[in-house]
Each structure stands twice: as C-alpha cells, then as structure tokens.
Design a binder for these strands. Structure first.
Lengths: 332, 332
DNA sequence: TTGTAGGCGTTATCAG
DNA sequence: CTGATAACGCCTACAA
C-alpha cells in the first residue's frame, strides 16, 4: 500500500499466503495453479480491489495499450466524430486514447508527435496538417505503427483512410456550375491533402466547362474560426462571387453569419455549398447544401487498420478511400 | 535498444562513458555534475534521441502526468469545448489527457472510472451522469483528486465547476412567459444536476406567474440524438405546446428539424429556446434563442482547480459557479 | 504445483 | 564529483 492506496501484487500474495509468482499466475490464468490456491488469490485480490499497475506491466512488456490521436481540433464536430469512431473500436479492445490537437500548426503537430512517442503509445492515428512528410522524421523513423485519417500524404507509402477529395471538389463545383454559377469563391484550407485535392477537383470542373480560373477567387482560410474575416474581406474587395464553396460546414457557418449580417440573401444573391454534412447543417438558415463525408466510419476504419498493424505486426500498408456524396438543400 | 528502438539511459551512459547514475544526474540537472561530463552525456542523449521512459519514471514516482477526462460524449460540441479548455491548461503543464465517454450511461461511467483509475491517472475531471454518488464508491474511496465539471452532486462536498442551472431554467422560462406562452414543453435530460436544477427553475417561474405545471409537458430525453423522436411523439400526442424549451442546442437542432419537416413555423406556431449557445446556433433556421453557458471557460477553470489539488495536495474543496446569460434571437 | 530470482528503465541513497 | 545498488510492481524462466 502506497500513498494512493493501490494494492500491489505483493499485498495480494501476502494476504493469500502465497508467493508473488503464484499470485501472478493465479490472476493471469497462467500455468498450473491449484484450484484452491487460485480461489484464495482471487478472493484476496478482490478484497484489496487489486488492479495490476499498468506501468509495471508496460515496462516489462514494452507495451502501453495506449493509442495517440492527433487531429487539428476536437472542437470541429468533424473530428469529434472521427475520434468517436476511433474510440468505439479501441475501447472495445482495451486500448486507451490519448488526445492531442495540432490546431493546424505544423510545429504543434511535431511537438504532439514527440510527446505521444515519448509516452510510448502503441500506435498513432493522425490527421496530418501537411501533405508532405517534411518535419515529421520522428514519426517516420520510429517503428511505431500509425494510420493517417481524413488526410494523407500522396506519394508516401503509408496506411490511410480518407475520402476521395478530388471528387468532393468536383461534386461541389459541378453542382454550382449546373446552377449557372461561374464566379465561384472557393474558401479553402491549405497545405493538407484535402485542400489540395479539392482545389484540383474545383479547377478540373471549371476547365471542363470552359471557365477560366481566377486566382483571386481562391482564398485561404487556415482555421475555420477565421471564416468570417475571410468572407468579409472577399466581399469588401468587390470580388463579386455568385457562389461560395467552403472547405467545411464550420466555415459555412461563419459565411452564413456574415451574409446574414450584411443582408445578402442565400441562395438568391449568393449560393453557399460546403463539405462534411454535420448534423446541424440540415437546420441552418438556409439548410446547407453540402458534400457528405462519413467521418465516424473513417475513424472506425482507421482504428481497425491500426489494430491489425499492431497485432499482426504486418508490414504491408492499407489504404481505404470513401466516396463522398452530394446532399442538396436550400442554400444553392 | 529494444524492439521499438527507444534508447535507454543505459545506452546513453555507455555512449558517454559514464555510469547510469551520472547520466541520470546530468540529464536531470540534479546534484553536482562536472560541466564536461554533463556535456558528454547531453550529446550522447541527443545522438541517440533519448527520451526517458515514462513508465519507468512513473513506477518510481507513483505519478503518471496523466489526467482522465470523462464526459457524456465528445460529439456534443458543448463537451468538445469543455475538453478543449481543459486541454489548453493541462498541455501547458506537461499533462496528457486520456479521454472517455459515458454516453449518459451510469454503467459505462463506472466502468470508465475503473479503467481510468486502473491506469493510475493523477487526477480526473468528470461530468457526472447522475446527481447522486451512488455507484461511484470507487471514485470516492480512491485518493485520486477529481473535479466535477458542468454537472455536480448537490450536497456532496467535492470540487466542481458548473453554471447556475436553476438560473438557466428560470431565464428560459421567464423569457417564454414574457412572450405570452403558457404551455411550455420542456424537453429535459434526466438524473444529472443540470436537468434537475433547470427543471426546478422552470417550475419556479411557472409558479411565479400562476401557471400550474403539467407533468405531461415535461419529457425526458436521455440522449440528444433522441430529440427527434421525442418531439414527434409529443406532438402526436396532441400536447399542443406553444413553445419548446430544450435542454441543449443539440436537442434544439433535432426539434427544429422535425418542426420544419412538419411545416410548423417557428416561432409563429411554436417557439423554441434552448441552452448552450454553440457557434452554429446563431445561424440555425431560425436563429436560436438560447441561454449562453461558458463551456470553454468551465473547462479551463476545472483544470486549474485540479492542478492545484494535485500540486498543493490541499484538502479543502473549491466551487465555481458561472452565471448564464440569455441570448435572444429569432426562434422565440 | 509452488517459490526464488532476475530484469524492465529510472531515480535516489549512500559510499567512495 | 562519480559509481554501485536498491527500490518501484510485475512477469517469467528456472528450480525445487
């Protein structure tokens, strides 16, 4: 018994009147233990509410039964859902989750990875801030298995679970073009694979319809909370878009807010489309047209892949790409 | 060097040509170490990218630098914000967060507490599912410091950070009554302090205005995702409310969805008010009148109190109660 | 079937 | 200033 009052195996052994080894065997159903002895040990353990110390165990096994999760911010319901999916799978297997947020900052991401590895996590699930491996040598050199989720690094051989972001970009842009829009303001994120691929999809669709891309119509919004300033600035500059394509529903909220404040009607004067299809998007004013991405399922899948890596120690990487789906509502 | 490739202190000592003890002292700036020796050790450590194994450290110190967080679900942006607040404070102090979700299930809550304590967390921050300590003997008997957040257990001497939920109930109800409503459907949660206190506030306000409470107008919704069924059922039963008071913005989303689907105008036919003031509530259709609760700040405060408990080992409990604020918008 | 002993990686104590 | 050595709590050969 120490400060915190946790009983140790020694306490159990003493109470049961057996040796440490026997107590351990009895509790772990290991080797041959006399039924009576086992019972005595189990009773002693129960009486002392004994729980094995995971630190001692981990020290010996080189395993922590702990998984690090690193997303941009859990305040974005998109990642909250991803994390929930991961958690569902991992908790069932006795793993515990350590959560970190990068806030889209490469420096913070690197630091979080350092912390997580220093904690000796058994694996990592990461939504990488950037689409290049630069700066993450620590991650790639470690032998700790990891899976990218939502975003990945094209051209780098890793496990990942994403959705087809080029299709996302095309789906949204085509939809707007079909509705007669030609000046489409794209409020995009930047540096990560989703942003890059969606932009490629956007440009592909414009080209396919003979619309020449206008650089000033693509605005970078690093973090969704900056959406309001970004749309305000774009409007003040007189860019005159007839439609706005937002990187995520959270950004769309900011955009709708500003448009409402300025008395600009949606979709009559400016149409708005975005990506994610979060629960609230159906009840926004107006209900938001958005590209559905199965966040929860992506989390589930990523966790499964990671568990496989950890258990089977397999080397080959696995990639899963989900297909996005347009959900039409009143904002376009 | 073991499987995972982490260098150990032994490796560092060997490379630097000193003993384990000296290496340890050099790295921890402990005791007197010759400048030249220290430098050698630090260089060796760097070359091997040595990070102390927290399991070994923890085993010795009886500390894990790890805090358990237990909320109902991180998919509710309310708790996502609470957790973010906690994380901000804790990360700065080198603590790591282990996240668990109770999903409003007392059984799952108890199990999560068991897991967290078994993990030897240094402290816990909990949004308890129920307002009574029953079933949580494990928590109360442990000597692990904990702080309740968002919800608490009235009458039990613990640390907690909440908002004045009775005021929340009064604020919302008074507002509706002022607007002429007398049949107010209250879609409440249940069992937790927030639900109980808000209901008390609701009843106080009704009484103050001579409105006799009608039990059938209080519906229990255990989990916010069930809001749609609940409101549908209430309407089908012909309860004929002229206003709905929701336990949280997430529930209000479900309610608005159903009302919209049924072609019921808000607020003309039925007014809707709720609690939280999440970011999206300003852009719902219609913009939601809601009672603002400072979630992030509650998280920050809870984390601070917990750190104080852990560091100063003080026994006295601390209570913080935030004041809610009505935010009037178009749904009422 | 049971007990003894060694070691996982660190830190702290105590000699030297 | 430095180096053995003894814990921390657990598991597992190896002996008995």
């Amino acid at each position: 018994m120490k400060i915190r009052g946790y009983a140790t195996l020694k306490d159990v052994a003493k109470k049961a009147g057996v040796s440490l080894a026997t107590a351990s065997r009895a509790l772990n159903n290991r080797g041959d233990v006399d039924q009576t002895t086992r019972k005595k040990v189990l009773e002693a353990a129960k009486a002392l509410s004994y729980t094995p110390n995971p630190l001692a165990r981990g020290l010996l096994s080189g395993t922590t039964k702990t998984i690090g999760i690193l997303v941009t911010t859990i305040q974005n319901p998109f990642y909250a859902a991803v994390v929930s999916g991961i958690e569902k799978v991992l908790a069932a297997e006795g793993y515990t989750i350590i959560l970190c947020n990068s806030h889209e900052d490469p420096e913070a991401e690197r630091e979080a990875i350092r912390v997580l590895l220093a904690r000796r996590v058994d694996g990592l699930i990461i939504a990488p801030v950037q689409s290049k491996p630069d700066g993450l040598e620590l991650l790639f050199k470690s032998n700790v298995p990891f899976v990218f989720v939502a975003r990945y690094m094209p051209g780098v051989d890793t496990d990942y679970v994403v959705c087809d972001d080029e299709a996302v970009g095309r789906l949204a842009t085509e939809h707007l073009i079909d509705r007669g829009h030609r000046r489409i303001l794209f409020m995009n994120s930047r540096g990560n694979s989703s942003a890059e691929l969606r932009q490629r999809g956007y440009e592909q669709s414009l080209a396919a319809h003979g619309i020449s891309p206008e650089p000033s119509l693509i605005r970078t919004v690093y973090y969704h909370t900056q959406a309001e300033e970004a749309i305000s600035a774009a409007l003040d500059e007189g860019l005159d878009p007839t439609a706005v394509f937002c990187f995520c529903d959270e950004m769309a909220v900011g955009v709708l807010r500003v448009l409402a404040a300025r008395g600009i009607r949606v979709p009559e004067e400016i149409a708005v489309i975005s990506c994610d299809n979060l629960a609230f998007s159906a009840v926004l004013h107006p209900p938001l047209t958005t590209v559905d991405i199965p966040e929860f399922e992506m989390g589930v899948e990523a966790a499964r892949i990671l568990l496989n890596k950890i258990k089977r120690r397999k080397k080959k990487t696995t990639q899963v790409v989900f297909t996005p789906k347009l959900v039409e509502r009143a904002s376009t």
